[in-house]
């Protein structure tokens, strides 16, 4: 089981309040991480307007992520990519019943504050947008709204968890329609998890301490992770997913769910494809159902895709390395 504890003392994001005369607590780790638990085995879809958000909801998306531009357009446009227009985010929140997430720039406290005030259900501190601080990520414990962060390795994931991330997405290369990087990174995280699990199982504390130094996180967090043998928060795959088979494969590698960016709404058969990706994610263990899902899409209408080797901009590398 994924532990829901792991709060830091006096975190500013956890607040005591009242609903009329009844005492309540908000923003606890249980509530923030618990929210991510409710998304498990689901697909979160990137959208830029109400129409796309409604298509996503009807197709069975578990949540939508609002951006100003889809990642492949961010790549084409160049320049600085910032958080989406608040008016569009609010319009989407008023028109779908599923949770609404939005992205802020890495390290941009005040874009995050604005999204927190807007009442989005989760904030993605994302490398798809241009980082605002090359040396720090946001200190996420100070927020009542939960955060999701990207990671390419176990160390990166645990650094984000230590800063208060309630959910992780193993990174791919966004906006490429190329799933190779997403596969590489989840396999890498899995391998690192197996390594520390075996250290824990053989009670090798010295090696675990060395791992904590290498990961640049506290020993306690490494030990807890090693003990359960998985990330201590929900982990989705993201970046470059374009087809039902892509999604099913990532589920089979142990991801808790899927983020799809440009893969759906940059394809010419968005509506069918959205549905097909959800079906393949839900029924990934049943090959006949994945085949049926794959049959719903037309490869000639897929996002063309890019070879990761020739990219000028690698979004996955953006942001602080510590």
């Amino acid at each position: 089981m994924i532990p829901l504890s792991g709060d830091i003392p006096d975190s500013k994001g956890a607040i005591c309040g009242k609903i009329d005369s009844n005492s309540v607590v908000r923003g606890t780790s249980t509530l923030k991480r618990g929210f991510a638990h409710m998304l498990k085995n689901g697909v979160v879809m990137d959208v830029t307007n109400v129409e796309q958000a409604q298509i996503a909801e009807e197709a069975g998306a578990v949540s939508v992520m609002v951006l100003d531009k889809l990642p492949s357009d961010v790549r084409k446009a160049g320049g600085v990519a910032r958080t989406a227009s608040i008016r569009i985010i609010e319009e989407i929140m008023d028109n779908v019943t599923i949770p609404v997430m939005a992205k802020c720039r890495i390290g941009h406290m005040y874009e995050a504050n604005v999204l927190d005030e807007t009442n989005v259900d989760m904030i993605d501190e994302s490398e798809v947008l241009t980082p605002a601080d090359e040396y720090h990520h946001i200190w996420k414990w100070d927020f009542t709204t939960p955060f999701v962060n990207g990671a390419r390795s176990l160390g990166e994931a645990l650094r984000r968890v230590e800063e208060g991330a309630a959910m992780i997405r193993t990174k791919g290369e966004p906006g490429t329609g190329n799933v190779a990087e997403a596969i590489y990174h989840i396999k890498k995280v899995n391998e690192e998890l197996r390594t520390i699990k075996s250290m824990y199982d053989s009670d090798d504390k010295q090696e675990l301490v060395k791992m904590a130094r290498e990961f640049k996180v506290s020993y306690d967090l490494v030990e807890e992770t090693a003990k359960i043998g998985r990330l201590p928060v929900v982990n989705f795959a993201a970046g470059g997913i374009a087809t039902p088979a892509d999604a099913a494969y990532l589920m089979s590698l142990g991801c808790d769910g899927i983020f799809v960016g440009s893969g759906i709404f940059k394809a010419e058969d968005a509506q069918e494809r959205a549905r097909a990706v959800v079906l393949a994610t839900t029924f990934w263990e049943e090959p006949d159902k994945v085949k049926e899902a794959q049959k719903m899409i037309d490869e000639r209408q897929s996002l063309l895709g890019l070879d990761v080797k020739n990219l000028d901009l690698k979004m996955q590398e953006r942001g602080s390395t510590v």
């Binding site: 609903i19 309540v24 923003g27 509530l31 009442n119």
Partner: peptide
């Protein structure tokens, strides 16, 4: 549905 509000309003009691 969503009777007590959005995620920020989620609570323990």
């Amino acid at each position: 549905r969503n009777s007590f509000g959005r995620q920020k309003d989620s609570f323990e009691a």
